[in-house]
Design a protein around this nucleic acid. Sequence first.
DNA 1: AGTAACTGTGTCTGCCGGACACAATAATGT
DNA 2: ACATTATTGTGTCCGGCAGACACAGTTACT
Lengths: 243, 243
Amino acid sequence: MTELLWGKEPARTRGPKPAITLAEIAAAGIAIADAEGLDAVSMQRVADDLPVTKMALYRYVPGKTELVAVMSDLAMGKPPERPDGPWRETLHTWAHDLYDGFTRHPWLLQSTIGRRPLGPNELTWMEQGLAGLTDTGLTGGEQLDAILVVTSHVRNIAQQSTTFPGHSTGLTEEDMQRSFAEILSTEAARFPRLVAAMRTSAGSENQGLEFGLQRILDGLDLLISSRVAVPDGIETLPVDRRR
Amino acid sequence: MTELLWGKEPARTRGPKPAITLAEIAAAGIAIADAEGLDAVSMQRVADDLPVTKMALYRYVPGKTELVAVMSDLAMGKPPERPDGPWRETLHTWAHDLYDGFTRHPWLLQSTIGRRPLGPNELTWMEQGLAGLTDTGLTGGEQLDAILVVTSHVRNIAQQSTTFPGHSTGLTEEDMQRSFAEILSTEAARFPRLVAAMRTSAGSENQGLEFGLQRILDGLDLLISSRVAVPDGIETLPVDRRR
DNA sequence: AGTAACTGTGTCTGCCGGACACAATAATGT
DNA sequence: ACATTATTGTGTCCGGCAGACACAGTTACT
């Protein structure tokens, strides 16, 4: 698994030359996932797009799980190079770059959940995210937690605006909207604040990414300011804002 | 679908009495998902735990998608009743309640992604979350975005600490940790900040929930303060902290 | 030339979701 | 009381899925 993700060469010896490469398999899988969703990616379907049979794929990949892992790390790609700048701006564009990646390959939201082996590209994203925070006075753990909370937010915003093909209910987007509106009106008494909030927010959709991002960055700013504001040699406790 | 989620009675007429109920089916499914993961929930497996055959389930549920939706809303349950209090405290405990729910039924993290029809319990959670924010001066859209960002954070923290049974790679948790440490040491040159951050954060695991939560609440606090600080009748623009 | 390692193929199994025809059941109309 | 009719549960069947395995062909090393 780890070897696959990190592209260790199998060091060819004897036997026939492989007809394809792991990269080609992954590329075929990515193309299918992009076009038809992750559920459309089956070993058979991938093999159909390559000059081999289904079972030949198992010479390159132990199982489907691993194939998807390789696909995921590859599709994620390297983060774009960005010039240095103030941490807030850096993290802000980093978040947007991440968001772009997830909208380019929405199935990544399905394939990269839970504990899993991390590939080189995913680690590079983390490294890049940490880069902006090195001079902020945050501890290592805090830096990790910081990019984690940003990642979480970006992921879920991207998720929210995505309808995954595959486990569709047969309902169109329209149908869902309508039945939701219907429920909300018939059950309005049970959800007064929800109804009110949705009424006043109608029309101003898709602000979620920036709103949450700004709140998170504001929160980080507060913590960072309290850290760097401490002159050398003077010990103070940061303001405890919990509760 | 909507009817199922909202428990509309099918209004019995003629024909044999149903041997089971939708609630029983959902309960069986939840039990399986809790014990063996969402992937272990198949129509056959659910029917095995009930006095009917697999195909009988389709008299109660149009398909597996809908079954999982019903299971999810039911497993989510109603949010615990909490006394009123300051918005920050309210939202804080709300987030922890949500976290508890996700750790009780980790498969909810898999089954409740993307756009989907929302059930009564899920809406009640939203309503409850909004309840704490009504007197904060935030607009409806901002309130929704606020609870969304909190939810996102809670979800991804819960996700992070969960290993989903089902698409396991055969690796134990230990193996994964070890191979990760190995990679990180051999490739340390490529990920200097990551290595540094992980070294200094070793031991202080599982702080992610509180850390991110406090940052988010701090950020919200800043926005809310800027709103309520505006005396009646005086128009001011909130400080633009973007970038 | 012989052997050993490696690749691709075809066949097979067990699982999945779901379509469909059919018999049993229970309320309704006469 | 009896026929009608809607509804329930069952058994069978289909296509698709991941993967195990034996086997034949291919290549490099001895």
